[in-house]
Design a protein around this nucleic acid. Structure first.
Lengths: 365, 365
DNA sequence: GTGATTGATGAGAGCGCTTGCTGACGGGCG
DNA sequence: CGCCCGTCAGCAAGCGCTCTCATCAATCAC
């Protein structure tokens, strides 16, 4: 690449080359650019008449400050980056979260940059190849780390003094982490409630289905186990991943349970898709839901078409996004001091897949 | 708001206040900042030795140019805005498109800003309240208009000399529009192919199901009608929206057709969800798919869990996004001259819901 | 009436970078 | 040897804005 050759010729000397800048406004209003700056930035110590004149000039010229110049001189930008880590695609859950982030940020004068990245949990922080968003100096002032994240990335961001906020549910950590600068939804609480609900309905043979090698599912599993123990019931779980596909995993798990004729009167499933799979397996074995078995799954208040009848532990994913946006903006305005965790509650939404236990159900098998 | 009081005191005179700028690099390498600039921008007319020294200094100081300063002085930014118009949420289809946009842009040094907006089709361009992304001067240099768009927004952007690229399939226009600066996927082609396929399988009573008051579904409908006519078959369609919910609309439409005992051997559905609804209705009427009726729907190559058996007209939505990203970047680098339309093909993916017609199927009803 | 205080304004420096221009240098050629 | 010209480094002018500081007017206390 060679330098561009001279082509500007006679640079516009005093005249403006077509664009409206703070100077044009100042000239038109007959004030200095400092005064214009004070008016557009809402300082109160400006004479009412001058203010009016400036405002008129702004309107007439349709002036809008150059964000690039503003960001440059203020040394900050109104951009927050939403970083989706280690996820193939933008799944419905994260779509809703992104939507919530955008919603909150847009309402508070910030913009959301969408970026993705992949990294291995094992890589040492210093050897981590950061995504371009994080490497680019001055692009975004705060990062929202969603998707599946690991300690090494957070360490790296700490080292580089990058401000960030994390979605804690999908954060995989070895040792417990101080719950700062993070948003979490209380899925464990929801799974406790769901378990209690099934017990109240009279169920005893309640199976948890889900791959507990994944931390987020393990949290749900542990909540289930605890409630079962509190009620002197034996947890009975199929926690090995029989498939990568959640639907298929739910189907295969329940199929296995029924094949070996283990007693089963309710299924608490780690996810919505796997609950659908569980229902498929029950159907295949001639057991009707909820008549012959109750099923509870998980969802995130996505608007589903007609048939969404699954009783679920439910979290408002858009709200999770809003909280992430809120925390990110607070981090920027709170001068970087750590913020305490925000928790979004979950609710057990009772739809059509649970029913009180009747002992003759056992006969069906 | 009052002006900030003086708090800087003795501004750092010649020393740098902690941050690494082009000056630090220049000093360390013993060259002028101009030379550093030329090196980091890849100009070739730099002496090899100086270049090496500069590169060394950059590495040692871990220097990264300040994007804010660069954007400011270059008067352009590496940010492209993905604007989702008139859509409640970020649905799976648009999530995939966004993903494709991000994919392409990230690979070409651009960043993607995610924004949403709502506007009425009827509003006159001059009265349109533009979303903040478009109003903010210097934020993004090009806008990708996805979601459902209308002429008034495009007119407004034209007037303001905003560069943009449109997803044409969801663009609602009165008069035909020159296909410039837009990406389109050929769903009409896919629906023609699907119709021909059903005819080849021997089906005659092929029903199109979908609300044709929506332009994108009407395009599919018209492709269907044309192929039917070419084959001297009578188009038979349920084009009135019986519900806002696609699933329910498909279900209700087919239910109505079957209720009045109209002959039906295949359903060509405007969307995937509505095809699921159609299958539900067939099931309710005791007709098994594909034994007693064939069904074709639509999808966008989303990875669905196990049971996705629907034969579909299919478009690679991620590719649509990539094309949008490509066109947007071309618009920026092609000095603003209009670019010709990009078309993403659709394919008929034959899964498990179609079978050759057997006349005794008619008996089932 | 005088000096001190307060308040509003304009002037201008400076943010970090790009880039046109100037001029030093050296090699080729007459 | 001198001249010309191509090459390449440094200088410095800006880009549009913010914000400090000096200035000046008006107000107030006594």
């Amino acid at each position: 690449m060679r330098r561009h050759s001279a082509n500007s010729g006679q640079a516009a000397t005093e005249t403006e080359n077509g664009r409206v800048t703070i100077k044009s406004v100042a000239r038109r209003a007959g004030v200095s650019i400092g005064t214009v700056s004070r008016v557009i930035n809402g300082f109160t110590d400006v004479n009412a008449e001058l203010r009016t004149r400036v405002e008129k000039a702004v309107r007439e010229l349709d002036y809008r400050p150059n964000l690039r110049a503003q960001s440059f001189v203020r040394d900050k930008s109104p951009i927050i980056s939403f970083l989706l880590s280690n996820r193939g695609g933008l799944n419905p859950f994260h779509s809703l979260i992104l939507q919530g982030v955008e919603d909150y940020c847009a309402n508070h004068g910030y913009f959301v940059l969408f970026a993705r990245c992949q990294y291995a949990p094992g890589t040492r922080p210093s050897e981590l190849r950061l995504p371009t968003v994080l490497l680019t100096n001055g692009l975004a002032d705060c990062v929202i780390a969603a998707g599946v994240n690991h300690e090494n990335l957070l360490k790296m961001m700490d080292q580089r003094d990058l401000r960030y906020v994390v979605l804690a549910n999908n954060l995989v950590t070895q040792e417990p982490r101080e719950p700062l600068n993070q948003v979490r939804f209380d899925d464990a609480g929801g799974y406790s409630e769901a378990t209690r609900y099934l017990i109240q309905l009279g169920h005893r043979d309640i199976w948890f289905v889900g791959d507990t090698s994944l931390q987020w599912f393990r949290n749900r599993y542990e909540a289930y186990v605890q409630v079962m123990h509190e009620n002197n019931l034996e947890p009975r779980a199929q926690t090995v991943a029989l498939s990568d596909d959640l639907f298929e995993n739910g189907r295969a798990s329940v199929d296995m349970i029924l094949e070996r004729e283990a007693p089963l009167s309710a299924v608490l499933s780690c996810a919505g898709e796997s609950a659908e799979g569980a229902m498929e397996a029950l159907r295949e074995h001639g057991r009707e839901v909820p008549r012959d078995a109750s099923v509870i799954g998980f969802d995130y208040m996505i608007v589903r078409s007609g048939l969404w009848k699954l009783t679920s532990v439910s979290v408002d994913a858009v709200e999770v996004g809003r909280q992430l946006g809120r925390l990110a903006i607070e981090r920027l305005t709170s001068n970087g001091k750590p913020l305490s965790e925000a928790v979004v509650p979950t609710t057990l939404i009772k739809r059509g897949t649970c029913r009180p236990f009747r002992s003759n159900e056992q006969m069906v098998l």
